[in-house]
């Protein structure tokens, strides 16, 4: 399957979707000019991946910032993972947040409440 690798910028997140190496990551900042267009290939990729997913998928979110328009698309990504989990696949979402960022921690908690998928909150420190 095709690998998606996108470098992050000051308004778009870094994306890694690599089935062969089992790497699934969205990190950095997300406030793209056109959120729907930005996330479309990611959602399409996940649709294709869902047909023959790996035995276990650990999907990592390590976001510094996202705007409200992105929050809706992040939910769409999580809902795709929920579908895969419902189909009996082993899915784990890891939600990283800086240990001093309560808002990012809370955002993770809220997503965990909304979607039914194994969800792990991981705090990290930035110096």
């Amino acid at each position: 399957m095709q690998v998606i690798k996108m470098k992050g910028s000051d308004d778009t997140p870094k994306i890694i979707l690599d089935k062969q190496n089992g790497l699934f990551e969205i990190s950095g900042r997300s406030l793209p000019e056109d959120v729907a267009a930005f996330y479309e290939p990611i959602l399409d990729w996940l649709d294709e991946y869902a047909e023959t997913p790996n035995k276990k998928t650990v999907f990592e979110f390590k976001l510094e910032y996202f705007n409200t328009a992105s929050s809706k698309l992040i939910l769409d990504v999580l809902l795709k993972l929920e579908d895969m989990s419902d189909d009996g696949n082993e899915i784990l979402v890891k939600w990283y947040f800086p240990d001093d960022d309560e808002d990012m921690e809370e955002a993770g908690e809220e997503y965990a409440d909304i979607v039914e998928v194994p969800f792990e909150q991981v705090s990290y420190s930035i110096d």
Binding site: V35, T68, A69, S71, K72, L75, E110
Partner: peptide
């Protein structure tokens, strides 16, 4: 709103 809202044509989520 996140669960029920749809992204508008203009890309707004109604969450701002």
């Amino acid at each position: 709103q996140m669960r029920e809202g749809r992204l508008s044509d203009k890309g707004g989520a109604g969450l701002g």
